[in-house]
Design a protein around this nucleic acid. Structure first.
Lengths: 193, 193
DNA sequence: GTCTCCTCGCTAGCAGTGCTAGATACAAGA
DNA sequence: TCTTGTATCTAGCACTGCTAGCGAGGAGAC
């Protein structure tokens, strides 16, 4: 048995355990909310002691950031699917918007880690996680045919923000739940004229 | 000295202390953030022991809710000032939007208590705090002349959400700070055509 | 094959959190 | 003057994120 292969197995196992941590954190957050995700609970879930978490991540925030990055990938995939399946540009924007809203509604805890919680991740720069840039790119491409004379980047950021505002305000009770579709329709009308 | 007057003085002093608590919480949150507002720190600030807080409020969340209600009054006043000072409807909407953004930028902790934190307050109903309804009303009146065929209430909620999204995403680093004015301008254009 | 060393994961504990039970001092009324 | 009730405090509970330092067990040297 070579030295290298033993080291490799160890690194592999370590990487597996790291994924185990992130997955456990995501599942726990999705099923019981982030306030239920404590280091003790997480340690119990992965069947290791607490300090093991800190050999993988700097702290709880870093774990949340890792969960967020996973989420970006999922969101990007769902947006892409929605955009490419649509018949025309207007429909594409509507579908992408609906897919975004659905993602936020179905996985609120994950969404919070990605966009609400103050995690230490680079965002609106070239250093941002590729999955995040990709998701943003889907929104941009959906808007491109409808941009007219507006700067595409600015337009995308603004539309994204509006969508984000609708979802967050509704989710913590600031907006009436049953008017959601009407608001979404109105927003789409204003951005796809 | 009558019995009633003594009781009255006591109730007056109690009410004063309650205001003291709310003010201390707001100031502490604004200067050092909500994570610095602990019950111990707050008790120290008002020069009483911890349990006194719980004779006024059910818990920390209730204190935050009280701070939020104070904030709604401030915001409503600033929005009203901006709206009534404007020359024409388009300018009014622009000024109200700018006033809203300025409020959120100048008092981020207060804004969070009002719109981000999950406080136990009625919002989009008739039971909502008057100050909150008033602030929302200012937005609605600013939008009324520009509503055309859209439902005014839905339009207001949507515009408000868009504004909220822009501010929150920018503030926790999801958007580039220097593009803020461009995004705001774009949003106003889409809502005041 | 034996011994040493080093890495890894553990137990135990620190300083902080929100919140509360029970003791206590103090003022009002008999 | 004595009793009663209330307002306030001290002390403590159960929890949080995080870490120091110990001990077992495998890797490498001889």
């Amino acid at each position: 048995m070579s030295v290298v292969s033993i080291q490799e197995r160890r690194e592999r196992e370590r990487a597996e355990r790291e994924r185990l941590i992130v997955t456990a954190a995501r599942e726990l957050a999705e099923s019981e909310g982030w306030e239920a995700v404590t280091t003790r609970r997480l340690a119990e879930e992965i069947e290791y002691s607490q300090p093991v978490l800190y050999s993988h991540f700097k702290g709880k925030d870093a774990i949340m950031a890792a969960v967020a990055v996973e989420g970006f990938a999922d969101l990007a995939a769902e947006l892409r699917a929605a955009r490419t399946a649509a018949a025309d540009p207007r429909q594409a924007l509507a579908d992408v918007g609906a897919a975004y809203a659905l993602f936020a509604a179905r996985r609120p805890a994950l969404y919070d880690a990605m966009f609400t919680h103050a995690v230490d991740l680079p965002f609106a720069t070239a250093q941002a996680p590729p999955a995040l840039r990709e998701g943003f790119g889907e929104l941009r491409e959906a808007l491109r045919p409808l941009a007219r004379d507006d700067d595409l980047e600015t337009l995308t950021e603004t539309f994204w923000s509006a969508l984000h505002g609708l979802l967050t305000l509704m989710r913590n009770g600031r907006l009436r739940r049953d008017d959601h579709d009407r608001r979404l329709t109105l927003l789409l009308a204003r951005f796809s004229r």
